[in-house]
C-alpha cells in the first residue's frame, strides 16, 4: 500500500494493548513526549478477550492524571482498528499529530 504517516511518531510494540500500563504511558510524558496514542484491536476482537477494553480504561485514568497535572487530556488517546486497516492507521496517526500540533509541545522538558 506504501502509505505514509507522520515521522514524528515513535512506535512501541506490545503483544496486546492489555499490556499497556498507566505508568508506561506516564513515563512517555515524563520523557517529553507530547502525546500518547494507543492503537488497540477492534472492540470485541481482542485475542485475549478484554485487553483492549482494559487499555481503554487505563487511558481514561491517564487522562485524569494529566488533568490533575494541568496537561490537556486530549494528548492521550486510544483508537481501535484491525491489522488490515493500514489506511485507518495512517489516518489516525495524521489526526493525532494534528491534534497535538494544535496543542503545541507540553511544558515538560525531557
Amino acid at each position: 500500500m506504501r502509505l505514509s504517516y507522520p515521522t514524528n511518531i515513535k512506535i512501541v510494540k506490545v503483544p496486546c494493548t492489555g499490556r499497556v500500563d498507566v505508568l508506561t504511558m506516564l513515563k512517555a510524558f515524563e520523557a517529553g513526549a507530547d502525546g500518547v496514542c494507543v492503537a488497540g484491536c477492534l472492540e470485541g476482537e481482542c485475542h485475549f478477550l478484554k485487553g483492549n477494553l482494559r487499555a481503554r480504561k487505563r487511558v481514561m485514568y491517564l487522562k485524569q492524571l494529566l488533568q490533575e497535572l494541568g496537561i490537556e487530556p486530549e494528548r492521550a488517546a486510544i483508537y481501535n482498528l484491525s491489522s488490515a486497516q493500514g489506511q485507518r492507521f495512517a489516518q489516525i496517526a495524521q489526526d493525532m499529530t494534528d491534534i497535538i500540533r494544535a496543542l503545541g509541545p507540553t511544558p515538560v522538558k525531557g
Binding site: K27, F29, L69, P107
Partner: peptide, 17 residues
C-alpha cells in the same frame, strides 16, 4: 506501582515549571 505513578507525576509537574 502507585509510587511509580506519583514519582512520574511529580517529575512531570516540576519539569512543567
Amino acid at each position: 506501582r502507585e509510587v511509580g505513578v506519583l514519582a512520574s507525576e511529580l517529575k512531570i509537574a516540576r519539569k512543567k515549571e
